[in-house]
Design a protein around this nucleic acid. Structure first.
Lengths: 215, 215, 215, 215
DNA sequence: CATGAATGAGGCTTCATTCAT
DNA sequence: AATGAATGAAGCCTCATTCAT
């Protein structure tokens, strides 16, 4: 391998690192102060880089936010996709999705804060790509629900779309409550994890029972 | 009634009218452009009053938003309170609440947009009073759910709080989808009304079946 | 006397009263917050009258200040004029002037604050009439000094103008120190009065000795 | 010296220069229009820099003024301190102080205008640090006077504090008269200098004679 | 790539003044 | 005369973005 390529590789690795640094900093700052309450300089300070450097990696403040959304949300969707494509029972799939969502919050609450509070509910969310990205989540959950209806695990007389919205909405508000501190979870890591698991099971429990096919 | 009182009343009626005028204008503008995207001058223009008059009635832009929240949300809570205090069956109460929420959106979508998008999900929402105001909704729905559990209409083995969050979250996301245009309802007024009613029934249907006490 | 005249008189008496009320209020407010720090509404509130009424009696905020200056300063000048025109010794005249200035501060510190701080040292003081009004004080003190030089009570080899400035400046700074609280006078009314008298005597003492004709 | 240090030094030198540029411009503008009559944009224009740059160097308009005061007044105090600490006769020291004050005005009238008119006599002057800074001048002059009393050069039966106030007040009003144009000095530079020297000598002359120890 | 000084448009807020009652 | 609602110009400050080094 020629030396230049080596350098190239290292350079772009550094480049990627700085970019990620800024992105992570932005998540922290946005989570703390909200998009409008955060200055580009706050992000730079948090990242420990110079003011203007942010503009080497991102066209503008807006792009930082949408990049966060695109990258993080894509990763999240991939995980949901994996669950939806699996061969588990419908109930297991739904529990997995619920646990995934709640667990991300447990581990990276700032990510969720920004995704949920700053992007999902923001003016700029009207942009078609972002609408599409969220619609994708509805589709994936919809796939799980509809396959459950097809297999007879779930009753078929109810609108799948409303059911999806209900399932996602339940988890969404659960998380929002946590973000806003409407609910406080106390205890050590293990207790926390257990609590979230139980919430996931309850939600899925109600949902499944409600959607359960009756004989 | 003395003439002066009459005048007094009329004057303060006019005063209240102007205030309401500005508040309504603010709702329109906030719904259209979001809080941060709206200028105070936009509100004044929309209300058809002079720039400075806004500051006669409100300390600053922020106060306009929180006033909207306080007044509109209080009205909404009163309605929910009325439902919760009634003597209907649990199912009827839940349908009423769901229909109320969805119907407000049908009739005054801007109110809901502002309440849901600009306040509920905003930085300033962290203020204790607003947290409390939302918690109140959880309490009222919680009252319905718990009384249903007590009467045996609903199963008692599930956490009431999670159930509440689920019910409200389902409706919240349903509305958010509508606000964001993720879902589009087409048709005339009667069709619209019918659609929302069906959504309410589906949500309550799933919820009730899921929560239904089993023999 | 016809009734109408009576009414006329009463009306204008009321008119004069309201005007004085506003003027007094303005002095208090200006003394407390400075000219620029005072709002017209503050003055109205302090006077206990309606907002717009101020504009019935005064063309604008500026006119309130200049009116205070003209009326209060004129009264002060009259008193100095009386002293200067008397037949006392030069020393007695100077002690009287010094005591007058210091005593006004003792009794009506707000007047002095406004005259000294807000008018004398303000941009708008550049207006010719006000320059003239202050120059008049210099002239009156100058008259005392020059008559003392003429009578042989004061040495004649020193510039009368510089001497005047010195005398007035000494008292001015003495008062400014009091206004700013650089010096604090403690004690009851009698002690206070005595203190100011002593200051007056010291200033005049130094000044007289310094200006004293030598044999 | 490493190159980086060199660059560092140059950069911060440039930084300091811009700051000084703005400060000097502010003095000109404040002297011309007064603090309240000056807009931040006026200062920026006068300095030939962009509006926003002012806010890189100063928190707000207010801070510009207090910075001027702190820096310029400190320099002035140092000069007075030098005089007070010298070994000259009391009379020489007082003449030096008087000449210093008058000469600063001769050379940098804007400085004096701002220090005397905008700061010393302003609302914000009430801030403790500024009070202290002025008190310092009183202390320094007080030291000269008291050492004169101790050495027998000045009579000891008069209150040193009142004497100080008298001396400083005399010079202060002399300068104020000049600032306000109550007195106009005409002539070329040499004549001007001579005039001010004579004023200084007159003031000190009266003061010394008045304070002179008698046998 | 990195820095942070420089730019300037944009928007909130204040408040003197006017006006309708 | 009296009231206080209504007006809108003016100015401070913020901060995203650019630029020179």
């Amino acid at each position: 391998m020629p030396v230049e390529n080596q350098v190239q590789r290292e350079t772009s690795a550094v480049r990627a690192e700085k970019r990620a640094l800024i992105l992570d900093a932005a998540i922290q700052v946005f989570a703390r102060s909200g998009y409008h309450g955060s200055r580009v300089s706050d992000i730079a300070t948090e990242a420990g880089v110079a003011y203007g450097l942010v503009y080497h990696y991102f066209k503008n403040k807006e792009e930082i936010l949408s990049t966060i959304f695109e990258e993080r949300w894509a990763g999240f969707l991939d995980a949901v996709e994996g669950i939806a494509s699996g061969s588990n029972s419908t109930e297991d799939k739904l529990v997995s999705v619920a646990a995934l969502i709640l667990n991300v919050f447990r581990v990276r609450p700032e990510w969720v804060k920004v995704l949920v509070m700053e992007i999902q509910r923001s003016q700029r969310f009207s942009q078609p790509e972002q609408i599409l990205a969220v619609r994708r989540l509805f589709e994936l959950v919809g796939r799980i629900v509809r396959s459950g209806q097809a297999s007879g695990e779930l009753r078929q007389d109810l609108d799948a779309q409303v059911a999806c919205t209900m399932f996602i909405g339940a988890l969404d508000l659960e998380i929002t409550s946590l973000v806003l501190g409407l609910k406080k979870i106390e205890g050590d890591d293990a207790e926390e994890r257990e609590h979230y698991l139980k919430v996931a099971q309850t939600v899925v429990g109600i949902f499944m029972s409600g959607m359960e096919a009756r004989s």
